[in-house]
Design a binder for these strands. Sequence first.
DNA 1: ATTTATTGCGCAATTT
DNA 2: TAAATTGCGCAATAAA
Lengths: 163, 163
Amino acid sequence: MSRPSQPKINTADHNSVSVIQSQAHASSSSLPASVAGLQQVPQLVPANPSAGGGKALPPSKMKKPPADKDSDEYRQRRERNNLAVKKSRMRSKQKALDTQQRVNELKEENERLEAKIKLLSKELSVLKDLFLEHAHNLADNVQPPTGADGSSPAPNNSSTNGQ
Amino acid sequence: MSRPSQPKINTADHNSVSVIQSQAHASSSSLPASVAGLQQVPQLVPANPSAGGGKALPPSKMKKPPADKDSDEYRQRRERNNLAVKKSRMRSKQKALDTQQRVNELKEENERLEAKIKLLSKELSVLKDLFLEHAHNLADNVQPPTGADGSSPAPNNSSTNGQ
DNA sequence: ATTTATTGCGCAATTT
DNA sequence: TAAATTGCGCAATAAA
């Protein structure tokens, strides 16, 4: 009761009584010929699920002839599949790599953007300060109320940029 | 040229003559007891590599007894490994998902930043325009008509910011 | 040295 | 029907 599992001992779904051995081609491999009498396929063909002795099976609902391991065509199919599998996995892996790289790129881009924002912000604040300063100067210079100038002390449009 | 095409027909490195079937426990499985005589292990034990009658064999370079498939301990190890494998793969997949999500997040963030930049830029340009306008006004107003005032036409500090 | 984590590989069931 | 995916177990090897 210590392990969080043991879903099912080991009873693999599809047995997996796999015994590779390309009968044709490939000669001096390495497969120890030990496992000799290896040919009989389970032959699990449930005679016929439903339908006692029916004949008409339109959609052809046969479970599947356990593929003769010996069949030459079987090996061919397997091989094709193995190739496909390999290909598929390669892609998958490649995609993962690409995605990771994408992350890196985006991260860089992000930094660039943030830097730019910082710069722009700085520039803005400088300009604003200049504005204020200028306004002050004006106020100081136009101090002498000699003239009948009714100029107001500048609108001071400081858009309080918040964020 | 780049197509790995057919690396090697199908000769798996490690044969892979796997014939699952936990002898003990597991009763009414599905594996037909067909594959009968299945036990003889190659027993590739080279008597003794080096050292004729030596005793001390520190690095002990034995290849490895082909693990008795029947061994109870073997099944145990296999099962443990199978679990580990499953775990590892789950992680891997999860990681991939996370990475993908990271991409999405970064992409969003990027858009936000770009928007901000756009805004700041706009603000900046507005302010600059104001500056210029103001400068012009000054120039127009302070037109030295006849006064003996030696004031120059303003420094016109337009920092032609380029970026 | 032992145990767990990774990795490549093949099989078979599904999907596409 | 064939190719692409996916889950699974095995075994070799890398990491702990």
